[in-house]
Each structure stands twice: as C-alpha cells, then as structure tokens.
Amino acid sequence: MKIDITEHNGAKVFSLSGDIDLYSSPALRKELIFFIGKKVPLLLVDFRDVSYIDSSGIATLVEGLRGMMSHGGKLKLFGIPERIVEIFAFSKLDKVFDICGSLDDAVKD
C-alpha cells in the first residue's frame, strides 16, 4: 500500500493505493494518528486505487473515525470500488462512515 497525503480546500487527503491488510495497515494507522493529534478538521480518504482491504484495514479506519470524532473533526471516504463497498456494507459500516462518490462530494458538507 502507498499513501500520498495532500491538501484540498483545507482538508487533508489520504490517497491510498494497493492492498490494505495486516502488513500495511500499521502505516496507515500511524499517519491517521499523526493528523488526529494535530486536530485537523477534515480528513478525506481516497479509495479509488485501493485493490483490497481486510478487517485490520477496516479496524484502522474505525479507529481513525473515532479519533477524528473525538475532537469534532470529520473523516470521509470517497471513490470506494464496488467490491470494497460490499465489505463495508456486510460489516454494517456503510452507514457509520460518510462514504462519498468523489472528492468534490466529500469536501461538501
């Protein structure tokens, strides 16, 4: 997994690519914790190039969501491939996360 971190209209954008699994999710967790510590108001996770996610990747995002909410920030996901949306839906997390179609949708409140 590769993580590119950029800014878009004041939001931090995490562009992920590749597989998010037990091996790679600690790197994502580290970055999320760093920006949660900085109390960024909006963190967007770009899933367009994510090919796979397992339970450790989902757990990392749940932890990130909770961390963001703890200081009143928001974490949104966008561009999730259909196969991965299905995993979120099965886990009943599609209603917990703010899942958007595109970056433009995600920056809108």
């Binding site: 339970s55 932890e63 099965f90 886990s91 009943k92």
Partner: peptide, 17 residues
Amino acid sequence: RLEEVRPGGLGVHFIKR
C-alpha cells in the same frame, strides 16, 4: 456484534460468511 462499531472482531465474520 456487527451493530457494535469498534475496531476489530470482523475477521471471523468474513470467514464464516
């Protein structure tokens, strides 16, 4: 429980489904 929102505890659901 899938209704419970917290990190962890999902892997076994993916296996059993």
